[in-house]
Each structure stands twice: as structure tokens, then as C-alpha cells.
């Protein structure tokens, strides 16, 4: 699956990481993305949101997608810009149907110790798309504090 059209992200601007399918390697990849967010001066709430959603996507890919098989890999593609952050996580698993996961906020499911990851990704990101197979997720987060466009700031300085 290529970048979802409504993300308005150029495919050529994406960086790619391929990591062994374990939590420690995934964290190292996640830390690279978080460093990019800090470099682009995303605010604390936005970084919190992206970190949470990314960690859920990576944990899903490793545990449910690749079923903790250390011989498998996860692929991460990302573009961190001033306006938005786009992140893709893909595993080598058979995928799943996100709609088939019961609502974890329903009273009957509240005390289940699992099943909140996907819901948190939708809650904290601006857009979330799964591919048809369900082994690849694209997430977009708008930067609510993005700096004004350059042309504007130039004209202000004059």
C-alpha cells in the first residue's frame, strides 16, 4: 500500500527503517522518530500522542502480527514535517480486521486487560488507515502548533 491520498505526503519524502521484530529494536526505531519530532519542535501533547500511537502500532506488529518471531522484521516508513507527521508500520503477519475488535470502552469490556491499542491509535492520531490485509497501518498527526508559512514570516519581517 502506498501513502494514503488524504495524507498529502510525497512518497519520495519518506524515510524507511527495517528493524528486527523485538521490542528493544522497535524502541530504538521509535526513538529516532521521537527525536525528529523534537527537532521539528512539536509540542509535548502532540509528541505524547504520537509516541503512544506509535508504541501501540509497533507492539501490535511484533506481538500479534509477527507473533514474537525474532526471525521476522517490521518496516517503518515516516515523514516528519513542520505541518504533520506521517508514520507507517508493517509486519510480516497475516493481518487482522480492525473493525472486528470489540469496543473496549463498552461497560461489559471495561475490565478486559487487552484490546485498547487500536482504539488509542484512533483516539490520538488525526487519521489512521489499515491496508486491506491488516498488516500495515498508516497514521497521520497534524502539528497543531506548526509555524507560519515561510513566505508569511518573511513579509512580516519587512
Amino acid at each position: 500500500m502506498s501513502v494514503p491520498e488524504d495524507f498529502s505526503v510525497d512518497e519520495a519524502s519518506l524515510a524507511e527503517l527495517v528493524a528486527p521484530s523485538d521490542l528493544r529494536s522497535a524502541k530504538a526505531s521509535g526513538d529516532r522518530i521521537l527525536a525528529e519530532l523534537a527537532r521539528h519542535k512539536y509540542d509535548s501533547d502532540t509528541i505524547f500522542a504520537i509516541k503512544l500511537a506509535l508504541e501501540e502500532a509497533l507492539a501490535n506488529a511484533i506481538k500479534h502480527g509477527n507473533r514474537n518471531d525474532p526471525s521476522k522484521h517490521i518496516v517503518i516508513r515516516f515523514h516528519i514535517g513542520d505541518e504533520h507527521a506521517a508514520i507507517m508500520v508493517r509486519d510480516e503477519g497475516n493481518g487482522f480486521r480492525p473493525n472486528a475488535i470489540p469496543d473496549p470502552t463498552a461497560n461489559t469490556n471495561l475490565e478486559r486487560p487487552y484490546g485498547r491499542g487500536i482504539m488509542l491509535m484512533y483516539a490520538y492520531m488525526t487519521k489512521v488507515h489499515f491496508n486491506e490485509a491488516g498488516n500495515e497501518v498508516w497514521m497521520l498527526k497534524e502539528n497543531p502548533t506548526r509555524p507560519p508559512a515561510k513566505s508569511k514570516s518573511r513579509s512580516l519581517r519587512r
Binding site: K51, L52, E111, P113, R116, G117
Partner: peptide, 16 residues
């Protein structure tokens, strides 16, 4: 300053 759904699951299991 951070937690995940796995942490929430752990807390639910602990509470039970």
C-alpha cells in the same frame, strides 16, 4: 510520563 495499553492491561489484572 508515559504509558501504553499494555500498562493499562497490567493495572486491570493487578486490580482484579
Amino acid at each position: 510520563d508515559h504509558l501504553s495499553s499494555a500498562a493499562l492491561g497490567m493495572l486491570i489484572t493487578l486490580n482484579k
